[in-house]
């Protein structure tokens, strides 16, 4: 489904991704783990076309999307759930969701079904549909960020640190919801600091360090290598 092949990405002169390769197959959750600054977020941004890769290729459903601008990547049904959530503060919860549905390649009936589905996952958002984005708590903003990705009907979600800074009970809740979203057929590339969340959700795991992929395997493979966990995650 998604194939990232030896991409090199720079911020100005700084060489952040140094030949990252990974793949996400249809229906999979794949976790990308590593320390702060290892290149996890940059990998997602390169796929999204926000910080385009200078070298290497990114293919999605067989098509080369390496040089596409973000809006065209999104229209290929890739949803980005950014680490900072990026809820538009001056729009209501409903308007934030509507914004995400404007260019979704679906008709009106399916769009409202999607909205219902997203709100069924997050009943708390339904109570707050007319509130401004900036009035939401951190957990609610994360719910809205995921719901906003969902209503566009993505085939693949790039989820960046969904549980960061949230209370354990909300973390558990979000983990279950992400699992349910995947069970309905949406693939995910998940960047996550919380190792337990990542290993519970992912079928495969990549470890990234200093812009290079250092390990690929199943969660069980990784659990069997405490040395890798210590070396690349400091656990």
């Amino acid at each position: 489904m998604l194939t990232v092949d030896a991409i090199h990405t720079y911020y100005g002169e700084s060489h952040v991704l140094q030949g990252v390769s990974l793949r996400v197959d249809a229906g999979e959750v794949v976790a990308l783990l590593g320390r702060n600054g290892a290149g996890k977020t940059t990998t997602l941004k390169s796929i999204m076309g926000i910080v385009p890769a200078r070298r290497g290729t990114i293919r999605f459903d067989g098509a080369d999307i390496t040089r596409l601008p973000p809006h065209l990547v999104a229209r290929r049904r890739i949803a980005w759930i950014p680490e900072e959530r990026r809820i538009v503060p001056n729009l209501t919860v409903y308007e934030n969701l509507r914004l995400a549905m404007l260019k979704a390649p679906v008709d009106g009936k399916e769009a409202s079904a999607r909205l219902e589905e997203a709100l069924a996952f997050f009943p708390r958002l339904r109570e707050r549909l007319t509130q401004n984005g900036k009035s939401l708590s951190g957990g609610e903003q994360q719910m809205l960020a995921i719901a906003r990705g969902l209503v566009a009907g993505p085939a693949l979600m790039l989820v960046d640190e969904p549980t960061e800074g949230l209370m354990p009970i909300i973390v558990r809740n979000l983990t279950e919801i992400l699992h349910a979203i995947n069970a309905r057929g949406t693939s995910m590339l998940l960047v996550e600091q919380n190792l337990e969340v990542a290993l519970a959700l992912a079928r495969r795991v990549y470890l990234i360090d200093q812009g290079r992929i250092e390990f690929e395997g199943t969660p069980d493979d990784l659990r069997g290598h405490p040395d890798l966990l210590r070396r690349y995650l400091g656990v």
Binding site: H71, A74, R75, V88, N96, A100, L102, A152
Partner: peptide, 13 residues
């Protein structure tokens, strides 16, 4: 929306 966060608007297609 674009007035407050152009990047997320673009990333929404």
């Amino acid at each position: 929306a674009g007035t407050r966060d152009a990047l997320i608007v673009r990333a929404l297609g």
